[in-house]
């Protein structure tokens, strides 16, 4: 599935991915692939502008860490991000339920 097919859902998907455990960009992408059983196979670079935007908006925070001598930026959810994720989850469930009811 391409990034534009996700149609505005990339941001909440990223928030949901780091909700359980902080992660760096590559790990977030792998989690997205795994949890979607490979359906979300994005152009991998697209995730980084989204991560930076979510951090600017105060929904994510990030910090450098060192792993095997490599510097990596690890993202975690802020309190505002957690609230935003809950809102998006509720909206999505309502939407999915309505679509399911119509589509059968």
């Amino acid at each position: 599935m391409k990034a534009d097919t996700l149609n505005g859902q990339l941001d909440p998907l990223i928030l949901a991915t780091v909700a359980d455990e902080p992660a760096h960009g590559y790990a977030i992408l792998q989690r997205l692939k795994e949890r979607s059983s490979g359906a979300f196979d994005l152009a991998e670079g697209t995730i980084y502008p989204a991560l930076h935007r979510l951090e600017r908006d105060g929904l994510l925070r990030s910090a450098w860490s060192t792993d095997s001598g490599r510097r990596r930026r690890v993202y975690s959810l802020t309190r505002a991000g957690s609230s935003a994720l809950e809102v998006r989850r509720r909206e999505w469930r309502l939407f999915a339920h309505a679509v399911e009811a119509v589509m059968g």
């Binding site: 960009g25 991998e44 510097r71 990596r72």
Partner: peptide, 24 residues
């Protein structure tokens, strides 16, 4: 660049899947 460098180090040879650098 540091973030993307780490990404490539995680999976060498993945540059094509990262997309066009100009577009990014």
């Amino acid at each position: 660049v540091a973030e993307l460098s780490d990404h490539i180090a995680c999976e060498p040879g993945c540059e094509e899947r990262l997309g066009d650098p100009r577009a990014l």
